[in-house]
């Protein structure tokens, strides 16, 4: 197992290093002068030149890349051009919104999807199964921002139970924070739950057709007992894979939901930084997200190995 983990860690480090090169190179190629953008159309050329100098944009490319990497090892991702504050601090402020949101959405999605998937699989072909599959198909097809708008109209405007959006910060209280994140989490979770329940259903159905289930049934177990004791654990691999992908998506890809609910999350930070050409923030945040995805995949791999001991041996 430790060999397996070591190999995985090495590939994680190499991936991250490659990511820094790609991120930096892409942003070098993108046209536009951040200083000119900040000072606007009335700015004099000497004011723009001074600002370029202050932002360190006049240094050679390689120097800037190396100082970025060097800073990173000291936990310094540079300073935002526009906000002026450290990038690490900006990411920190946003992650306290994005991470709980992603976790809540994942929890809601799993809490819905796994029971639904099991239920549908155990009644495969029945009217209930068909109905569930139709609903999940609908759930996948409908974009999450549309769910979000419906939720806002009903719970925020009509019932006024929760705010229509915004996030006042955790220092306003845990309850207030959760109230703000509840609708966005539900809106994010529903389409994910639809996908996950379909995956869970088909994974279980596939496992139910395996020989060892037939053996278990022949041994005298009921269908339910066989499913519960033998099929579930074996059906978990595809489910965990999808959950890992979903978690990465929920953290990084929520820009639309963040906009609908005007939440100060990572997605909006990146988007805003890109439009303002705030290079340190784009670099830092994208790298952080890449790191996050890589680490999630690493954890998913470890989980596989834990679920299925055969993978540990194969990995050696």
């Amino acid at each position: 197992m430790s060999w397996f983990i070591a190999r995985r860690l090495l590939s994680l480090a190499v991936t991250l290093l490659l990511a820094t090169v790609v991120i930096f190179a892409v942003l070098e190629i993108v046209p536009g002068d951040p200083a000119r953008l900040m000072l606007g159309i009335n700015a004099t050329d000497d004011a723009v030149a001074t600002l370029r100098e202050q932002l360190g944009l006049n240094q050679p490319v390689l120097m800037r890349y190396l100082s970025w990497i060097a800073g990173m090892f000291q936990g310094d991702l540079g300073h935002s051009f526009t906000y002026g504050s450290p990038v690490a601090e900006l990411i920190g402020e946003r992650i306290v919104v994005s991470l709980p949101l992603a976790l809540m959405a994942l929890a809601i999605s799993t809490a819905i999807a796994i029971p639904v998937g099991i239920y549908a699989a155990s009644r495969r072909g029945s009217a209930t199964d068909t109905a569930i599959m139709a609903v999940t198909q609908f759930g996948i097809a409908v974009p999450n921002f549309w769910f979000a708008l419906l939720l806002v109209y009903f719970f925020a405007i009509f019932l006024r139970w929760v705010p229509a959006g915004g996030f006042a910060g955790w220092d306003e209280g845990i309850a207030s924070g959760f109230r703000s994140l509840l609708l966005p989490a539900v809106a994010l979770a529903l389409p994910q739950a639809a996908i996950l329940s379909r995956v869970a259903r088909s994974a279980i159905i596939e496992v139910l057709g395996e020989d060892f289930i037939r053996t278990a049934r022949a041994k005298g177990l009921t269908r339910r007992a066989a499913l519960w004791r033998h099929a579930l654990r074996n059906a978990l691999i595809p489910v965990v894979t999808i959950m890992g992908l979903q978690f990465a998506f929920l953290l990084a890809g929520t820009i639309i939901i963040e906009n609908v609910f005007y939440l100060p999350g990572l997605g909006r930070l990146v988007y805003q930084a890109i439009t303002q050409h705030d290079l340190p923030v784009v670099q830092g945040t994208v790298l952080f997200l890449v790191g996050f995805v890589v680490v999630t995949n690493f954890l998913v791999d470890i989980t596989y190995a834990w679920i299925d001991p055969r993978l540990r041996r194969r990995g050696r």
Partner: peptide, 18 residues
């Protein structure tokens, strides 16, 4: 000053009294 970039969100925020 609450930052609401999205036009649909601006409408909901007003209607909800946020």
């Amino acid at each position: 000053f609450r930052i609401i970039p999205d036009a649909a969100a601006a409408t909901s925020a007003l209607l909800a009294g946020d």
